[in-house]
Design a protein around this nucleic acid. Structure first.
Lengths: 210, 210
DNA sequence: ATTAAATTGTTATTTTATTAACAAAATTTT
DNA sequence: AAAATTTTGTTAATAAAATAACAATTTAAT
């Protein structure tokens, strides 16, 4: 398979979620424009994404939802699934646990980590919380490959070094501080304040031009 | 001012945050490559962004941090600031309140909304929580222009219609369900599960090719 | 005083992502 | 049975974003 564009990967994940929804409602087939409407994008983009993963629908009947879901699964997921650690069991960490629960995903939150003694050794939404010092040990034991950093504090770079050392292969960083990781670790960063300021900017701009 | 690219707006917000940090540490000037290092991007991109907002540094001395911060503020912020509502005072909503506190931002979280009777009329991190039925009333009273949807549930489209009706001009949607809004409302959507699945995909891919 | 190094600002190029265009085939309508 | 419509798959065109290239200029080094 040729290299999938970043954005296509993101959209495939989203398609799958709404396709699972359709399946749950007893729907069997779907047209590109239906998928497009669910994600307010164009039907062409949907067809192009689907083309890129080598699936073909049937003319005038659309795509077989189950087949498409399965294929997206083959592309995105690993057979055994992947284990995720949440670093920082604050509000955001707990929100993530909630969001993932019941999503019959191949991603399993296998552990949480914190420095707060009150949180360590407790269970949050079914996730055991360990002290950050146990990181390496637990990452090995639970075969964790992915970490989500949700600490509001500014220890981020230090934490990321611990993660890399422990053998983590992908990091999703929700901290406002950007971090540096070696090439073999995939890094995705997202900053909520920036998103909010972006919305604010475009609201301001629209107000001016209207 | 010519139209700023989306991505430039995002980066300006991020630059400002680290520049404020520098200021707090007593730093007065900064080079493009220093800013670049803080955000692991290239110096060219930094210079280009700064060029687009019409600021010029001094050769061999870099950019005056205070001036740059002020200019970014002029571009992103409004003079009076903007008021934000959080829809859904769950974990994610509370995380946002925490993240914004003490960030001396022009964005003020003016109200929270929920349907849970236990949450209504309480104060979370300094933010008063109202029942969702009071939305229109409070939005007018507090002059709220921006809403962040952080409900995990699937009432999203209905909520977004309420927001539009109440006069909201920009929405940041953290729900996994995409929503439709009229053209005059700016919409930004972000899906945490998708980000996580994206990381998982690239971790898998790297494992295969290495 | 000359040369070398560092740094900005800007234009040009390349890459990535989106949208448009359209042929091919299945179905429906006339 | 022929024509019209719908829908896919794919190539071509456009737009957006990132990177490279490089002139201009200041400072530092020789």
């Amino acid at each position: 398979m040729k290299k999938l564009p970043d954005k296509t990967v993101e959209r495939l994940s989203q398609y799958r979620r709404s396709l699972l929804n359709c399946l749950a409602n007893g729907k069997k087939h779907i047209f590109s424009h239906e998928i497009a409407n669910l994600h307010h994008i164009t039907p062409v983009q949907v067809r192009r994404d689907i083309m890129l993963i080598g699936y073909t629908g049937t003319l005038r009947k659309g795509y077989d939802i189950q087949e498409l879901v399965d294929l997206i699964g083959e592309i995105i997921d690993t057979d055994e699934g992947q284990n995720v650690a949440i670093i920082g069991i604050g509000n955001l960490g707990r929100a993530l646990v909630t969001y993932l629960q019941g999503k019959r995903s191949k991603l399993r939150i296998a552990a949480g980590f914190d420095i707060n003694k009150d949180k360590v050794d407790r269970v949050y939404g079914g996730v055991q919380c360990y002290h950050i010092d146990q990181l390496e040990e637990i990452v090995k034991k639970e075969n964790i490959t992915i970490a989500v950093i949700t600490t509001p504090a500014d220890e981020t770079q230090k934490i990321s070094e611990m993660l890399v050392k422990a053998g983590i292969r992908g990091i999703l960083n929700y901290t406002p501080t950007a971090i540096n990781v070696p090439d073999h670790v995939y890094l995705e960063e997202y900053d909520m304040i920036t998103s909010l300021e972006k919305v604010a900017f475009f609201v301001k701009k629209n107000s001016l031009t209207v």
